[in-house]
Each structure stands twice: as structure tokens, then as C-alpha cells.
Amino acid sequence: MNHAVHGWLIPAISYAIACVGSLLALRGTRWALLTEGRGRRNWLMFASFSLGFGIWSMHFIAMLGFTVSGVEIHYDVPLTALSLLVAVAVVGAGIFTVGYSRRPLGAVLVGGVFTGLGVAAMHYLGMAAMRLPGALSYDHLTVGISVAIAILAATAALWAALNIRGTLAVAAAAPVMGVAVCAMHYTGMAALSVHLDPGRDSVTGGVVALQFVFPLAVGFAAYVFASSLAFAVAPSKTAKRPPALAGRAAPLRR
């Protein structure tokens, strides 16, 4: 197996995508805490999609650099799409827990578990979508470590969303979250073993990884465009603080 067949280019791009998703999720959650009613719900949905789609994109861009010598890897499209939906839905459960809870510490812990499990579920569903002439197996201890990394990373990200104020602070937190997301991915990949079947020299069904490039590029471009619009309508730093944060002495600011 080779996890970086194209060198450091693919891992670097996937890391950048993870950072962008983390940045937008952190800002979206902060903006949600500056608003109430429908506005809060919309910003939490934006944060959920940003983190879920960002992590999912990071995973599948990283998979462009994964090869197994002598075989062509295909991916089951419905299962791959399901992994995206799971990522957004479970990550969203964690973010909404934080967004509507009046007990920040408990919300961060519960939301971190939900969000981390969503990241891990997305990764292993995506791996289950692989089709090759052989079987996959995993080292259970390393899988457990990867899930623990995902939960710790998600908990740290939600804590940052509640406590880190200011654009520069969030910009500094996002790369740290990006490192954690990539660490979870490559730890999960380290758990993988591939056992080829000598009686099979090809696999039918699914699509090769390169066929994901165009839809990923289009999807990411639309994502960036929508995010730009979101930045344009972001609440101002003078927006009213929600009741859940009313007791905090430090004002929220952009």
C-alpha cells in the first residue's frame, strides 16, 4: 500500500480543505451564538455542513493518493454519498447540541462525542465503499485510537467555537483542527490491511477515485461561493448576545 503515491501534494491539499472546513464551522458556530431564532438555526446548519463537507472532502482528496500495488481501486457511489450524509448529520447533532445548550461544559462534552463519532463513521463508511480484488481488515487498537483522536479533536473544536473570540484567534485554531482531522484519517489508514485474492485480478462496479475529482471540484467551488455569501451577511460584533451567554463578562466580537 502507498498512502501518498503523488508525494506530499495530495496530503497538503487535503489538509488545506480540512482547515477551510474547520474555519467556517468555527465562525458559523460563533455567529450562531450571536443570533436567536431562525438565524441561529441557519448558522448552525451552515457550521454543520461546513465541517461535515470539509472533513468528507479531506478524506476523499487524501484517498486520491492511496494505491494498492497491482490493483485498481473502485468506490461504491451510493455508499460514498451516504458517508457524506452521515458526516453532516452526526456532526450537526454535536454542533446543534452546543448551539442550543445552556450548560456549555456538558454541551461541549456531549457534542464532542457526537461530532467525533460522526467523523469516524464518515471515514470508515468511506473505506467500506472501496471495491478491490481482495478483502480489507483493521487493527482494532489502531481503530480505537483513531476514534479517540476524532472525539478529542471534535471536543477541542467545539470548545474553541464557544471560547475563542476574534478572527485571528479562530484563524489560528482552524489549522490545529485541520491537523487533528488529518491525524484521525491517517491513523485510521494505518489500521488498514489489504488481503488480495490471487483468483481475482479485477473488480467490477463503482468508479475509480479520479472520477470523484470533477464533482468534488464543482461541489467545493459551490461551497466556497455559498460561504462567501455567508460571510457577507454575517452578524456584526454589536449583535445582541443570546441569553445562554449573557452571564459572560467578555463581549463577543468578530
Rank of each mutant, 00 (worst) to 15 (best):
V98N: 11
I164Y: 08
A87C: 04
L44G: 13
R131N: 03
G111M: 03
T80P: 05
A148Y: 00
P198N: 02
A209K: 00
R102T: 15
P175N: 13
G206F: 01
G54S: 04
W8S: 15
A93M: 15
H6E: 11
P251Y: 02
F231Q: 08
G134A: 03
V194G: 10
D139N: 15
L51A: 08
T155R: 14
H140G: 11
S236P: 01
R200S: 14
V90K: 12
M184T: 08
G28T: 00
A121C: 02
G37E: 06
T115S: 15
A32L: 03
H3A: 05
Y186P: 05
K240W: 01
L196H: 13
G21M: 02
I73H: 06
I13G: 08
R253A: 10
A161K: 09
A171Q: 07
G178A: 13
A129K: 01
A120K: 08
M127K: 09
M177W: 00
V203S: 12
L64I: 11
W8E: 12
G166R: 07
A234G: 12
V86E: 00
V208Y: 02
A250P: 01
V194M: 13
F60D: 06
G205S: 06
I145P: 05
W56A: 02
G206Y: 06
G39H: 01
A156C: 10
S50C: 15
A217D: 04
K240D: 08
D139Y: 06
I149M: 11
S227Y: 00
H3G: 06
I151K: 10
F231G: 07
A4M: 08
Y186E: 10
A172C: 12
F60N: 07
A171R: 11
V113R: 13
Y15R: 06
A107Q: 07
A121H: 07
P78A: 03
H185K: 01
T29Y: 00
G219Y: 02
S48D: 10
A18C: 04
A250V: 14
L162N: 15
I145K: 12
